[in-house]
Computed example of a mutant assay.
Amino acid sequence: MHETLHKFGYPDTVIRDYAHWVVLLRPQQVTLGCMVLALKADVRTLGEVGPDAFAEMATVTKDIQTALAATFGPQKINYLALMMVDPQVHFHVVPRYDGSRDLNGTPVDDPGWPKLPEMARALALDAKALDWIKAKLVGAWP
């Protein structure tokens, strides 16, 4: 597995593994339920992603949307392919909320709503809170 996967905590943060993609819980939660959708292959541009991987991406994004709808109910989901620091193809999956959501009894907001997500800002969460988010998402995965 390539360096970008390890940067986002692979294998400990794996929510679901597919043939071409892996979905990881993003350790730095910008909003509740942030994930990373990463291509497993060591590919550095979207133009190099093969047709089989793109076809599978339709299933993966549908599964992401289903799990997020069942857990935290975002109004929108942003998929950001920045690849500025972490070079392999990956998307930051940022659920967007027009109001606060419950993080195991603690309300959390999306202060960037309805504008761009505040990617430099992360919720102050400990390992227990991250485990709770991951368990909720895994449990809701189709």
Results as ranks from 00 to 15, higher is better:
L5W: 05
H6F: 14
K7T: 14
F8R: 04
R16W: 03
W21E: 11
V22A: 09
V23K: 01
V23M: 03
L25W: 06
R26K: 14
Q28F: 10
Q29S: 13
Q29F: 08
V30N: 06
G33C: 11
G33K: 04
C34A: 13
C34P: 05
V36L: 11
L37E: 07
L37Q: 12
L37F: 04
A38Q: 05
K40V: 03
T45V: 05
L46R: 14
G47I: 00
G50S: 09
G50Q: 08
D52I: 00
A53W: 06
A53R: 04
M57L: 15
A58S: 14
D63L: 09
I64R: 10
I64W: 05
Q65M: 12
Q65L: 14
L68S: 06
A69P: 01
A70P: 00
T71P: 06
G73T: 11
G73Y: 01
Q75V: 14
Q75H: 12
K76M: 12
K76V: 01
I77D: 05
N78Q: 02
A81G: 15
A81F: 06
L82S: 13
V85W: 02
D86W: 00
D86F: 07
P87I: 02
P87R: 12
Q88H: 09
V89D: 02
H90V: 03
H92T: 06
V93Q: 03
P95A: 08
R96W: 06
Y97S: 03
D98W: 00
G99A: 13
S100D: 11
R101G: 05
D102E: 10
L103S: 11
T106R: 15
V108R: 07
D109Q: 09
W113D: 02
W113N: 01
K115D: 14
K115I: 00
P117F: 01
A120I: 03
A122F: 05
L123V: 07
A124K: 15
A127P: 01
A127Q: 14
A129S: 15
D131N: 14
D131E: 15
I133M: 10
V138I: 15
G139V: 02
A140Q: 09
